[in-house]
Structures are given as structure tokens and as C-alpha cells.
Design a protein around this nucleic acid. Sequence first.
DNA 1: AAGTGGTCTAGACCACCTT
DNA 2: AGGTGGTCTAGACCACTTG
Lengths: 233, 233
Amino acid sequence: MNVETRISWTDVRDEIRARILNRTYEPGDKLPRDEDIALELGCARTTVHRAMQDLSLAGLVERKRKGGTHVRTDPVTRATFDIPITRREVEQRGAKYNYQLISRELKETPLAIMACFGIQQAVQMLNVKSLHLADNRPYILEDRWIDITSTPEILSVDLTLESANEWLVRHKPYSRIEVRFSAMSAEGETAQHLSTPVGGALFVIERTTWIGPSPITTVQAVAAPGYQLSARS
Amino acid sequence: MNVETRISWTDVRDEIRARILNRTYEPGDKLPRDEDIALELGCARTTVHRAMQDLSLAGLVERKRKGGTHVRTDPVTRATFDIPITRREVEQRGAKYNYQLISRELKETPLAIMACFGIQQAVQMLNVKSLHLADNRPYILEDRWIDITSTPEILSVDLTLESANEWLVRHKPYSRIEVRFSAMSAEGETAQHLSTPVGGALFVIERTTWIGPSPITTVQAVAAPGYQLSARS
DNA sequence: AAGTGGTCTAGACCACCTT
DNA sequence: AGGTGGTCTAGACCACTTG
């Protein structure tokens, strides 16, 4: 008797992915129902479901109740990256971490910040500028706006001791984050704070954090020259 | 009689997440076994497993067989982004897509490329430089190296008609991708091809693609000024 | 060696969506 | 209204990893 080894969900995933790549199922095509695939491959429907969950997360197929499973017409490469607390990022590079508060003021939100938060009218927010250092050299320059309606506690935090970055991550849950990457030239104050020549190319990360429908904070982090961000998968 | 509504895995996830955020389980702490949580919350172990799967993917906890589930000590913000085929990216902005092949040569890999592929000795690879345009204006300048050992078929593709980007996505499965982001100053040929002033800040995406242990291709994509990449979650 | 997470199954019911 | 994916359960066994 030939004892068949049991089929795993990764086997199913690999089989379906292979069929998509070799055009057995073409872009836009509807795949068989989970149950039929399960029958064909000889496993439980749950196993097919697990495989599909993976393919769906990876962006290869799209699933809808009643609509069925379709091969995505626009294959995308989906990647994931981690943004740790800046202090840990520095420490993991084996460098000594330092932090300087540059300024802390209540101000009316400028237009660009209103756009980040999706609001129409200027309001008072806490604007915090600070510098993160690695081995006493500038690492990241942070320009942050914090909504004091959703996070009034921030007003009583001593930001000379703990960075807003760290305090927020530790005390404020969030439900959604938007991140934008871009490049900018070093100019004026930015170049000065980062101790870098005017005109150099700097890597910029902008993050806006939300809890439900309410914005918490938006931050523009400008990295010193040479900074690189990695992602996988 | 009070009929309890059935507990869903999102309920379990939210409950555990809440406990982590309010420090019932502190960073580094070991959580109860799945089975105990299931007993406590009154659901099946599978349901707890599904919840943990989500928390683990989100980077909140770390799970190991026998080791159990631990709250991560370094909370990270994990975000996901899509990299579509460049043509679709342009078209989705409502712009007209064009493509120009700049050069196509068999060359020995320089040191930087050997590092991307993790190889020790220089070998012959196909080096393709090309320009993607949106509404006839430079959009992305691509400098790509393709391993002709793993992908010999590329040698017979007419790259004046179809970009290597598109051909590879359509015909070559991959199992792993590494992405690196950085910023660089516009200089020499790069500035010229992108029709941008020397010294401007440019956004750079480097991708290396693998199938199993074998590298397929590595590409440096330099975006025209103003380019922004977004990520979510 | 044993504990804990990971997976598979079979069956049931639910929820969403298209027709 | 009905079809399809999504989830829950209970039980079993497996596989990894740590003590």
C-alpha cells in the first residue's frame, strides 16, 4: 500500500501559485470554489482556505463572498517593513543613543499638516522638534505635530527626558498608520541640525497615526545622509 | 435566558491587544497558553490561534513552539506597501506610459551587484538600463542586472518592446524580495536621463528578487523629483 | 522528554454579495 | 434567493524547541 503523505496548506498554496504563474489560471480568471479545489487535491476545505488566505495577503488573488476567487489582473509586489522606536533602531546598530529636544510650542496647524490630518480648519496643536543622535552624531531630525484633543496627556510629559516618539508608542494605541517616503535636499535649518552640507540628498519618512477616525500625530522624520530603509518579502 | 453571542477571533485579538496596551501583559511577559486563553474566554483553541496569528503578523507578539507566546519588547510599527509594475503605476495616475531602452549589455558584475546577490566572484550578467516615462516626461530610471544562469530566457526577449520589469513579473515566479530605500543626489548621466538639474534630491528604490536560494535580478530604480511612495497599516 | 504552538479534518452555520 | 467565502468547534496528531 502506498501511504500518501498528508497535504499541507503550503502545498496547496504552491500548487495554486504555480498554476497562476504558468497561466493555467490567467489574470482575471475565476478560480474553482474552495470546495472543488479541496476535492481535487484531496484535502479539507479549511486547508484550501488557509492557502487562499496567504495568496490573498500576498496580493496574488482577490476573494469575495459569492463572487468567488479571482486572479488579480495587476500583479503587485507586496512588501512589509518595520519601523522601530528610533532609540531601539540606533541601539540595534550598536551605537549610543542620545536625544535632544529642539523646540516645543503650541501653534496653529499650517496647511500641510491640516492635509495630513484631513481637517479643513486650522486648530491648535503641539509642535515638537527634536533630534535623535547615534554616537553623538545626528541621526534623525523629527518635526512632529500632536493633536491635543485626542492626546491631552502629552502636554504634561517632560519631553526633554523622553522623546515624543517613545512616549506615544508606549502609551497611545493606534489603529491605522499612513507612511510616505520621499527625498529632499538639505537646506537651511535642516542641514544645520543634521550637520550636513547644503544640497545633499536626505531621506524623508512622514507618518500619520490614527486611532479610529481621530488623528493622533503626524511626523516628518528627516534622516542623516546614508540612511537606508529595508523591507522584505 | 441570556443567549451569549459566539466569540469571534477578532474579539479575542482585541481583548489580548487591549491587555498588552494596558500592561496586563507587559513587554517581555509570557502569555498564557492558547488553550488556557480559550478556556478563559470561552472559545475553541483554534479561535485563539487565529487571533494570535494576527497579533504575530502585526508584530505585537512573538510565538515559538514550546517557548510559548511573548509580548515583544520592541514594539514595531509594521506597514505594508505595493510595488506595481511601473506601467500600471503610471497608468493609474492617469498618465500616458512610454518606455525607452537605453542599453543592453552582457557584463561582469561590479562589486556592489555581487553584494546584492551575495556572491563572491564576478560573473557575466545582463545589464539593462531603461527609462519609464509618464506623459512623455521621465518617471523612473532603471538600472537592472539579470542573472542569466537562472533566467537564460531573458536573452531572447526583445527589450525594446517590453520592459524587463514587465517581462520578469509576467514570466518569472519569485519566492523572496528584498527592498531598500534611500536618497541620492542627481548627478551626471542620471540627472541627464531624468532631465533634472544636477544636485536635486532623488528617491531610490533597490530591489533584489530571489527564487529559492537563486537570485533572479536586482534593480536600482531612481525616481524623478517629486516621487512619493505610500504605505499603510 | 515533554510542553506548546501549528495544522488537518469534518461538519455546521453565518455573512456577504451577486444575480 | 442562493452561492461562495469566512468562521467556529472538537478532537487528533505533528513538529519544533526548550529545559
